[in-house]
């Protein structure tokens, strides 16, 4: 079986990045938007690990960065979900179209 090249991995990660972006812009459910952002962050993780393994195998910078991104993404998700729960209490909905008091 052929070795998987870095180009293929980069293709996957870039595709994930733009899928995440598309999801963020089209989805109207707050939790789904949060998931879209997680997809973006995971595409970055794939990038870092792939670069580290293929291009700079002697160093560990990329892997460290990935671990930190995973940790911080968890913190970010926790905070965002807390905010969404609070928003649900006041708006009785987690649709972004209902949180539209401030515009322009």
């Amino acid at each position: 079986m052929n070795e998987i090249s870095i180009t293929q991995i980069l293709f996957v990660s870039t595709a994930l990045f733009f899928i995440g972006m598309y999801g963020l812009f089209t989805r109207r459910n707050m939790i789904t938007m949060l998931m879209a952002i997680e997809i973006i962050l995971n595409s970055v993780n794939i990038n870092f690990v792939a670069f580290n393994k293929y291009l700079y195998p002697g160093k560990l910078d990329g892997v460290f960065f990935t671990i930190f991104i995973i940790t911080i993404a968890a913190a970010e998700a926790a905070m965002a979900i807390a905010i969404i729960i609070n928003l649900y209490r006041s708006h009785h909905s987690i649709d972004v179209e209902d949180a539209e008091e401030m515009k322009y």
Partner: peptide, 24 residues
């Protein structure tokens, strides 16, 4: 609550862009 949600989503998205740039 609306302000906080808008802030966390746009700041997380901005970090995502920044991180993709940093990874490249």
């Amino acid at each position: 609550g609306e302000a906080a949600f808008k802030f966390i989503i746009s700041s997380a998205f901005a970090s995502g862009l920044l991180l993709f740039g940093i990874s490249l």
